[in-house]
Design a protein around this nucleic acid. Structure first.
Lengths: 130, 130
DNA sequence: TATATCACTATACTTTTGTATACCGGTATA
DNA sequence: TATACCGGTATACAAAAGTATAGTGATATA
C-alpha cells in the first residue's frame, strides 16, 4: 500500500515524485513506444521482426525509439557475432514490469469508455485524425 | 488477475483494446495534462487558480488542455452567472478514477529509478532539456 | 483616475515529433 | 546476374505541440 504514504512523502520530497513520473512519461511519450514494448512482451525480437510487428513504423522511428528505450533502461540490445550481424532486442526487468502500468492503462480506458460513452451518449471521444 | 484473460481476448477484439489504450494516452499526452489533473485531485479550481498551481503554464495552453480534458470526459466545466463570470473546473468520476493510473505510474517510476540507477551506476536517465 | 482581476482569445513564432524516400555493404537465394 | 534480406543511416520535409506577448470588456479596489 503505497497509497497511505503518498501525501505524507509528497509534502517532503516532491522532486523525487516528479522525476519518477517523468521517467514513466518518457517511456510512454510518442506514438510508437507503447506498441514496441507491447510487442517485446511476447519475447525478444530482431529489428526487422519488430518492424513487421509494429505496423506502419518506419525504420528511422523504430531505430530512434529503440535507442530511447535502451537509454532509459527499458530495452536491452544484444549484438551477435554472426555474418551478417544479428541484433536482438528484449525487455529488461524494468521493461517487463512496465506491463503493470500498461495493464491499468488498458483497464482504466475500458472502464472510461463504458462510463463516458454511456454518459455523454454523443460523439466519440476525441481521437487523433488518421 | 487480468493477465489470464488478456491474450485470449486480445486475439478476439484487439480493436477495443487499442481504442481503450488510446483514450488513456490522450489523457496523458502533452506536457501539461498530468499536472493539471494532479492539481484538480485536490478539489475544484478556477482558471486562474489552476494557472497559479501549474507553474509556468501559459493561459493559452491551460485553456487548450482544459478543453481537451473536457472533451474527453475527464474534467467538468461549470460557468456561474456572476459578474464577471466565475468558471469552475472539476474532475468527473472518470477523472477521479484516473488517479489509479497516476499511482502506478508513480510507483513504477520510483521502482525503476531505484533499480536502474543502481544497475547502470552511470549517467542519469534521459530527460528533456529544460 | 489608474491599476488589478476575471477568463480567456489572437497572432506569430520556435521546437519537437513524425514521415517519405533513398541508400549502405555484405550475404543468401533464384 | 538479379533480387531480397540484414540492421540500420542520411536527407529533406510536414505536421503537431508548445511559447511569447499582447489584448478583450466589464468590474472592483487604491
Amino acid at each position: 500500500m503505497i497509497k497511505n504514504i503518498d501525501l505524507e512523502i509528497l509534502d517532503r520530497c516532491p522532486d523525487t515524485f516528479v522525476l519518477a513520473v517523468n521517467d514513466t512519461m518518457n517511456v510512454l511519450s510518442g506514438k510508437w513506444k507503447f506498441p514496441i514494448i507491447a510487442s517485446l512482451l511476447f519475447g525478444k525480437k530482431r529489428f526487422k521482426e519488430l518492424g513487421r510487428d509494429v505496423t506502419k513504423i518506419t525504420p528511422r522511428m523504430l531505430s530512434k525509439e529503440l535507442r530511447d528505450l535502451e537509454m532509459n533502461g527499458i530495452v536491452k540490445r544484444t549484438v551477435y557475432n554472426t555474418v551478417p550481424v544479428t541484433v536482438e532486442y528484449e525487455l529488461t526487468a524494468s521493461g517487463k514490469s512496465f506491463k503493470k502500468v500498461m495493464d491499468v492503462m488498458l483497464e482504466w480506458g475500458l472502464e472510461h469508455r463504458k462510463i463516458t460513452l454511456h454518459d455523454l451518449e454523443k460523439s466519440p471521444l476525441q481521437t487523433k485524425a488518421s
